[in-house]
């Protein structure tokens, strides 16, 4: 099978390996690394990670689909993940979600046709004290309100 993951991936794994008790424990970092390289995790990449770790492909699928941080579908340039768990929900997360859906013209879980935005729902982001929270790409946007959400999207649009 032709390798889809780069030499860099395997190097990074070799460096990480001694830090973990066994190879299975490397699954999460390996998936992160693979996603950083490919932007998302297509089935072939999951299969390659499975072969590298030495477990059945099915087990990698189970792990990758369990965590919402792994993208099993291609995502847009900006990935907005709005937390809809208890604390955020009580502080208006549902309104934020429907606002984002209307503003972007897509449903939660979809990507805009121009590939600029992907909208997802997230379980507790661990920042309940500043609820409602959204994770925009790698940043946390806390104490979010509709204005803040609108501003963020406008800024990203102009940032092409």
């Amino acid at each position: 099978m032709e390798k889809l993951l780069s030499q860099k991936f395997y190097q990074a794994m070799n460096e990480l390996e001694p830090r973990y008790p066994n190879k299975k424990a490397l699954i999460l970092p390996a998936l992160h690394q693979a996603q950083a390289e490919c932007g998302w995790l297509p089935p072939e990449v999951l299969a390659e990670v499975a072969a590298y770790i030495g477990v059945h492909e099915a087990q990698i699928r189970e792990v990758a689909s369990f965590y919402t941080m792994y993208n099993l579908k291609p995502v847009g340039k900006n990935h907005l993940r709005i937390c809809t768990n208890v604390a955020c929900c009580l502080r208006g997360a549902d309104d934020l979600m429907s606002y984002a859906e209307r503003k972007l013209g897509i449903a939660c879980g979809e990507t805009t046709p121009d590939g600029m935005f992907t909208l997802s729902e997230e379980e507790c982001l661990g920042a309940c004290t500043t609820a409602p929270v959204m994770m925009a790409n790698d940043d946390y946007v806390e104490n979010l309100d509709i204005n803040g959400l609108n501003d963020w999207i406008e800024r990203a649009k102009n940032d092409r």
Partner: peptide
């Protein structure tokens, strides 16, 4: 043979075969 899998989690979980 590991052919049945648990995909996703919580309320969205799906016990199925790969694809």
């Amino acid at each position: 043979i590991h052919e049945m899998v648990a995909i996703k989690r919580g309320n969205n979980i799906d016990i199925t075969t790969i694809d």
